[in-house]
Design a protein around this nucleic acid. Structure first.
Lengths: 178, 178
DNA sequence: TATTGTTATACTCTATAACTATA
DNA sequence: TATAGTTATAGAGTATAACAATA
């Protein structure tokens, strides 16, 4: 089994460019300073872990902890911990899962809903200022392309995970090819 | 001095959309699992902190530790620590700064140069696969817009920092306009 | 027995504070 | 005295491992 797969073909310069830009902005935007600035603007005192989780909950609630962990790409124990904090601070509540008594679904409170709205608003407002020179058409094009890129990344990532799962599971059907 | 600044105007839906997509991909791409996968593909055993620093060094070498810290948005002590690791592992060396004997500039070794090339290649290759359906024109448009977005973010961020500095420093010249 | 979630623990990454050396 | 860097320390964020409860 070849561990370090050999180069398989050239990479387009555009993609290489995107890769650099994305890693750069990714690192910068996850620094503590940046986070503090955002929390200051939003008037919300939450740490980074809590914000990431709260965003995910807001996207589709009520959700089970396991589902949240999966979507965020973190371990379930981390979700447990962070949910407990958010519960103490009054940003989320738990409601029993009608289908499975092992689980409890996580739901935003009014405070949590308000917090996430402020955070998103503050973040978007900062971007708006940074991109003040852009025409509405340019912004629209970027939004469309970027959104599509993220969707494709997520789909590809899911695809990879499924493949990896198959490798470890006993194959039910005989493997064909490859 | 108003601490929680009141809403100052509407945010365009496009920008709000970009903000969501960016934070999502940002969080996911900085998870440990994702990093391990990348290192596996690249055949390079480096932790996240080391990779971030190595990328920055590769962008413009040789650089002083303070400059690296500034560009990465981290504290100088973190750079010190990470450079020491990279030096032990043979990815960077230090050369005396001719202009300032307090500092030593950081430079990639052959191993370091190779490592960063592999990492970038592996990252870009993964993206290429995820975006396999895109036409070259679409990729080009995204690359252009995205690159410009990142540049504008950096410029805006610098602008903010400068303003903050001025607030704390005694003004030397009388402030004119704004 | 398998799945879901939690508790306990440890490790990685990064910041803060105190210190050193040169400017 | 101010600046650049380092050392020492601590904290936040997240993973791993062991466990409990329900399916």
């Amino acid at each position: 089994m070849p561990t370090s797969s050999p180069p398989a073909g050239p990479v387009s310069p555009e993609v290489a460019d995107i890769e650099r830009a994305l890693t750069r902005i990714t690192y910068l935007s996850t620094r503590a300073r940046q986070h503090e600035r955002l929390m200051g603007l939003a008037g919300v005192p939450l740490d980074r872990a809590a914000v990431a989780l709260l965003r995910q909950i807001a996207d589709c609630e009520p959700q089970r902890p396991g589902e949240l962990a999966h979507r965020l790409g973190v371990e379930p124990s981390h979700v447990t911990r962070t949910v407990q904090q958010l519960q103490k601070s009054g940003h989320v509540t738990r409601v029993p899962d009608p289908d499975d008594r092992r689980a409890q679904r996580i739901q935003l409170t009014e405070l949590g809903r308000d917090a996430i709205a402020r955070i998103r608003e503050a973040g978007a407002r900062g971007m708006q200022l940074a991109l003040a020179d852009w025409s509405p058409e340019e912004l629209g094009r970027l939004a469309t392309l970027f959104h599509r890129m993220v969707d494709d990344f997520l789909a590809y990532s899911k695809h990879i995970d499924d493949d990896r799962e198959q490798e470890h599971e006993p194959t039910e059907a005989p493997p064909r090819g490859h």
